[in-house]
Simulated scan of single mutants.
Amino acid sequence: MDLQLHGTTALVTGAGSGIGRAVALALAAEGVRVALLDRDEDALSETAAACPGSSVHVADVTDEAQVDAALGSLDRLDAVVCCAGISGPVGAGIEDITLAQWNAVFAVNVTGPFLVLRRVLPALRAAGTASVVLLSSDSAFVASPGMAPYCSSKGAVAQFARALSVDLARDGIRVNTVAPSVVDTPMSRGDLGDAALDAPDFPVQTADEVAAHVAYLVSPRSRAVNGTTLLSDFGYTARSGFPA
């Protein structure tokens, strides 16, 4: 299917690795001119090399001044995809989590999209019709032990997107989220270990599969989809606990 994205522009955060890199490559393959943002300049340069015509913007999404400086040159955007994220403490109860650790997770996962979108909102409005996709997680709906900061932040991301979809509808800007279950990324491997993902006993998806969901939501093909979350979890949350 032609996603009708050729010649459009999109900003992708967290584009240096993982889902962000996969999204950047998928959009570039559709003919999108991508603006790539990450705090890791070397990783960002590697992604840019695979995305013809892309621009590189180095910034930490939690730093307002860096975000404003990095994105000030963007005057029109047809889409923004916020992929930058961290997992924070894994396997820790809240009694063992410091306030600094809690705040760090929310700073990247929730405040980051807020700062980025606030800065580029004029560029999105200039497009006439635009699409925003935020990366949430199935952890917005179910919880794994010892991941309270991450689960809470991803729930906040999903609700942030719903609120924005209402606020920005009059501007022709759609806002949706993609909420995948475990994805084979460097972050997941850091949390779970290589062995758990090399021979998993649970369903695992690739970053490319998530990027395909994002590309659809970015495209005009999904113009009637707004304020919702695409939950890609192999049907796990649909299962009843009824013993039958």
Rank of each mutant, 00 (worst) to 15 (best):
N226G: 08
G88Q: 12
V132S: 02
N109G: 03
P180D: 07
V110I: 07
R76E: 09
V157F: 13
F242A: 12
A163I: 11
A50F: 07
D194Q: 14
S188D: 05
L121K: 00
V225G: 00
V175T: 04
T228S: 09
T13S: 10
R189S: 11
D68I: 05
D42F: 14
D167S: 11
A211L: 08
T228F: 00
I94M: 15
L231E: 03
A104Q: 14
L134K: 03
S232I: 11
V81W: 06
R221E: 05
N103Y: 13
E95C: 11
G155K: 01
L99P: 01
V157L: 10
S144Q: 09
L197E: 10
A15V: 10
G53H: 07
G146F: 13
G53I: 03
D63R: 11
I94F: 12
V225C: 09
Q4A: 13
D233G: 09
G18Y: 07
D167W: 04
Q101A: 14
A48F: 07
A143I: 08
A69D: 15
V210I: 15
E209H: 14
A163T: 12
L5Q: 02
G14R: 13
L231P: 00
G241C: 06
S55L: 11
G16Y: 12
G18W: 06
L230Y: 03
A215V: 04
D198C: 10
A92V: 14
Q205L: 11
R170Y: 09
A22E: 00
